[in-house]
Design a protein around this nucleic acid. Structure first.
Ligand code: MN
Ligand code: MN
Ligand code: ZN
Ligand code: ZN
Lengths: 157, 157
DNA sequence: TTGATAATGGAAACCATTACCAATAGGAGA
DNA sequence: TCTCCTATTGGTAATGGTTTCCATTATCAA
């Protein structure tokens, strides 16, 4: 799955080398899966997808690797309220795709939205700056989610 | 714990009657605990606190009641990443205390902040309006959290 | 090649939450 | 007040996502 050929190194190699971690087959396979979808995969989802190409890779490794990727900052971990963690690549090759989430509390559907992102991020940056100063925090990340009922769930009731 | 005396009915009674739910001893006890703290209690925290005054109330009822309170909108449920849900009264008697959270990824400390809240809420309302229209959602709630390292955890590293 | 260390995978353990079910409490109506 | 129906409750057992444990394997520097 990952690029072992002459296509050039995947854009995430630097992140690994820099931190002293090895870029192994399982890690590349997991990153490969995450980079090929825009869905919000659970650990098991990742496991099943990876399993097709590499049946020897175990679920434990999936959890461990996802934790590592979250630590490094390559992956975001979310809780949408369905009892399992969801994972998503934090940025594409070009650093694009920053977005927030709209969650239906009826059916669990999750929608990515990028509208209003600019305004939000601008305010967030200002807020982060203020909070950092006031509470002496080094802020590294933020989470914004909206909850509500989607059209389908609204008509059902 | 709850106000069975002549102090007047607690401000949350209306919410119950309106929805056809009974305001029982366990429910009042749980609301009593939540209304007397500004901490972010887990279900077990609530259980232990309630247990002192009402040893007969079981953990199952705590979970059930917290779910109910979340549904009614009296309580917010949070995930700060420590593997257990945290609960907090959504509003005080005077509807005050709307705030967001600052979470330390090092030690798990959670700080309530109200600074910048006005600006944030104003933008949030605008965003909610836009998202409602675009995705045909009925938005009922939002979540904002900032993550980072607190001063203590920063110096430890 | 060798040795030290990082990484892995399977099985078992963990533990917050839920499901189940029999017992109890409360309120509307007779 | 008495009766019936339903909401509510509490203990126990299960559930299931996630971690822990440990023996094995892969990787890299010397
Ligand atoms: Mn997303
Ligand atoms: Mn709070
Ligand atoms: Zn829905
Ligand atoms: Zn800290």
């Amino acid at each position: 799955m990952p690029f072992r050929d002459g296509t050039g190194p995947p854009w995430w190699q630097g992140k690994f080398r820099g931190c002293g971690y090895r870029l192994t087959i399982p890690r590349e396979a997991i990153l490969g899966v995450l980079s090929k979808t825009s869905k919000h995969l659970s650990a098991e989802d990742v496991y099943l997808a990876v399993h097709k190409a590499y049946p020897a890779i175990g679920l434990t490794t999936i959890y461990r690797t996802l934790d590592l990727l979250v630590q490094i900052g390559l992956v975001f971990k979310f809780d949408f309220g369905d009892g399992r963690a969801r994972y998503e690549l934090s940025e594409g090759p070009k650093g694009a795709s920053h977005h927030h989430h709209l969650v239906c509390t009826g059916c669990g559907r999750v929608i990515d939205y990028t509208d209003f992102i600019d305004e939000e991020v601008e305010l967030l940056n200002r807020t982060e700056k203020g909070l950092s100063k006031k509470f002496n925090f080094r802020i590294t990340n933020h989470l914004i989610q909206f909850y509500g009922l989607c059209d389908r769930c609204r008509s059902k009731k």
